[in-house]
Every structure is written in structure tokens, then in C-alpha cells.
Design a protein around this nucleic acid. Structure first.
Lengths: 110, 110
DNA sequence: AATATTAATCGTATTATTGCGATGAATATT
DNA sequence: AATATTCATCGCAATAATACGATTAATATT
């Protein structure tokens, strides 16, 4: 997308943007929801859950792994995935902090 | 970015993704933070706040307006912006719902 | 050892995003 | 009326994201 001028923004602004980008595709949201709602790791049935080709799913998993939201462990021929609880809660805190600001502007100010 | 297969995902997944995309650039986060922390509308000093050209800021404002997070009202020669409180709280609820799922997977499952 | 299964990566096509100069449209000011 | 101010839009260049077929790498199975 063209070059984002990361260095000119605050750390929080870049952090929110980076985490939001990870959630900015329905397939990645679906992956996270699927992992969240299971008691155990997911070993190999992720592609079946999504309406995308295996290569594309692998790409999305790579992005989620890159930002640390999921972990993958080799388990024989397949790979097991699960949420990285620590990073997930860190992300939650970042968004909660953003949403903790009250909306100062009144309803009919504009 | 290539065509996202929106129709193959749930409404919630698409909604989270669309809202997250709006937050997926530090400039847009900066704009929202700036608007949040002010008691009044912002009339005309938004470009000065950001390290970007006027045309680029206008582009980001357009995206935020498109998803309904901000409102703009013409006020003479300038335009006044403020957070759309209703949509902001709607977004907050969507993310809160996403984060309300407990992480079922145990720490050392992977 | 040969084959099957699984998932990552490569290569490529397509489309979206970012950024900004230039221009245009609208109102304010002189 | 002429000029200034403000912001939106156009047009372009550069880069990122999405998607998938094909291939590769790794382990399991026979």
C-alpha cells in the first residue's frame, strides 16, 4: 500500500494500527474465532473450516504468527495451532485502552 | 489487495474486519484520538496535527467518514469534524464482543 | 524404499492502499 | 469582482495485500 510513515507517529498509534491490520481480514478473524472457541489445539483441520485454498490459509496463518497472536507447533506430519494467550490479552488491553477514552464531543456539536 | 471473498464469511467476521481496517493505519488512529480528546469539533487544524500532506489527510478522513466513525459539517470555508458517538460505541461493542471470548486453550497446549 | 499426507513457500496475476502534487469547488475577505 | 482560504477530488507512482496453482520440504504409512 505505499509506504506508511511509521516513524512519524506515536508508538501507541503504530501498535493499534499493526494489531488492527491483523484483524482486518475476515479470514484471520475466522481463524482466531475458531481457535478461541476450542479447548484444544487445532491440528490440521483449519483449511476445511475456511473457504480458501490451502496456500491462502497458510499465508493468513503466517501473518497471525508474525504478529504473535498464534503459535504453531509441528506435530508429526501436521502442525498444531493455538492462540498465544499472552499476546491475545495484550492486544485486548491495547484496544480497551483506546476505547476507554470517553467521547468528549457532544451529540449535536456537528 | 486482491479480492476479499466477503460473501463466504459471517457478518460478524466481515464487520470486525471492516472496522479493523479503519484502524489499520496510524494516521487514522491519530485522527480518532485527536477527535476523542477534544471537547469540541475540530475545524480546520487537522492537517497541522498530522505529518502528512493535506491531500493524504483528506483521503484518511474520507475512509473514516465512509465507515461512519466521524462526521463532517461544512462551517463556512472550513469543515468541522467530530467522532460519531453512536458508531464509535458500536465499534467498541463489536470489539468487546470479540474479546469477551475466554481463551479456552491452555498455556502449554502447543 | 516408495507413496501419501500435510503445510510452507514460490511465482504470478489482480486489486487495494498510501502518498502527494495539481486542480477544482466552495465560501470568506478585501 | 478579484483574491485568499480551505478542503475534496483527480491522476499518478510506488508498494502492499489477496488469492491460488505449483512446487518443495517434512514426516507417516505401507
Amino acid at each position: 500500500m505505499g509506504v506508511t510513515k511509521t516513524q512519524d507517529f506515536t508508538e501507541e498509534q503504530n501498535q493499534v494500527a499493526a494489531l488492527a491490520k491483523a484483524l482486518a481480514h475476515p479470514a484471520r478473524v475466522a481463524i482466531l474465532q475458531h481457535l478461541l472457541h476450542r479447548q484444544t489445539c487445532i491440528c490440521g483441520d483449519l483449511v476445511e473450516v475456511l473457504p480458501l485454498a490451502q496456500a491462502t490459509v497458510s499465508q493468513h496463518l503466517k501473518e497471525l504468527k508474525a504478529i504473535g497472536l498464534i503459535k504453531g507447533t509441528v506435530e508429526g506430519a501436521s502442525v498444531c495451532y493455538c492462540i498465544d494467550k499472552h499476546q491475545w490479552e495484550k492486544m485486548r488491553d491495547v484496544f480497551l485502552h483506546l476505547f476507554s477514552s470517553p467521547v468528549a464531543c457532544q451529540d449535536n456539536c456537528c
